[in-house]
Design a protein around this nucleic acid. Structure first.
Lengths: 150, 150
DNA sequence: GCTAATATTCAGAAAGATCTGAATATCCAG
DNA sequence: CTGGATATTCAGATCTTTCTGAATATTAGC
């Protein structure tokens, strides 16, 4: 593991932090990305210098987020984790955050004193709604571009 | 301030948390949104039950994020804050986060062992790049729709 | 310049998030 | 059914973030 690879791992940990996730989750993701081979909990814990228990929890969160998957080999209790090289999960997560915000804005509009405030809140919500509606189309385009490139 | 309005404020605080911002920032934003009238630090602190110093810091962060603005009235030291009813600032912030991620992925690709890992990382980066490129077009469409609606 | 009004800074307190290690649970092979 | 390999849980320790209140700085009006 070179110094620069280490930087990548730490940097990704740092970045995950900006989405409100624990640093360790991003670090594990970085480790798995660089490694490509599935890794066991012991390997992860060893490589990152964290307790195995923590690795277990964080790795499962990574799976829950859709950024990695776990595979168990027949004939062993051992679980291996491998990175998924795809950002769709991230987009999906963003999307559901945005939907949450949308719901909150609508609730705000409902309870705001009637008059201009209420209208403004509805406008914000409408704009966000419009944005969300564009989502599938954008995804389609991206996937298409992807397909044609390969 | 009704119970439901209070819920809106708290809910927005909760939501901000998912972007890694302090809860108080979102609460202030919610308060300002519902109120529409500019509010002084004393009012904010009073309404949310927080120290004025904290209100000061958080309100300025809100301004820095582009979600509110401060105005000082001539003849007084008092600073008033008012919400901006626009999500563009949020999109912009997201965008710059995404650019940060893009840079990290490229760095990862650079330092990855050559072979399939490196290619995969480049693919992820390319996809994100594609997404970012679509941004301006999406914004244009949204604004246009907005204009035609009003 | 001085005073009153107000905002800002910052050290430390309080609250919250994350990580560790020991204890426990689960599964596999024989 | 037992023993060993492994994963998971969870109470408490540690680290981080956020908030408070006193001290300080800034500005307006006289």
């Amino acid at each position: 593991m070179t110094e620069e690879q280490h930087q990548f791992i730490e940097g990704l940990g740092q970045h995950m932090t900006t989405w409100g996730l624990a640093r360790t989750i991003g670090r594990i993701y970085g480790y798995l990305l660089l490694r490509m081979e599935p890794a066991s909990l012991d390997e992860i814990a060893e490589a990152l210098g964290i307790a195995k228990s923590g690795a277990s929890v964080a790795a499962r969160q990574l799976v829950a987020l859709g950024l990695a998957r776990s595979r168990s080999q027949p004939g062993s209790r051992r679980v291996l984790f491998e990175a998924l090289y795809s950002l769709e999960a991230i987009f999906a997560a963003r999307n559901s955050q945005a939907m949450d915000l949308l719901a909150r804005l609508r609730q705000g509009a409902r309870v705001a004193p009637e008059g201009p405030v209420r209208e403004q809140l509805h406008e914000m919500a409408d704009m966000l709604q419009g944005f969300l509606n564009l989502g599938p189309e954008v995804m389609r385009q991206l996937r298409e571009r992807e397909r044609s490139r390969t």
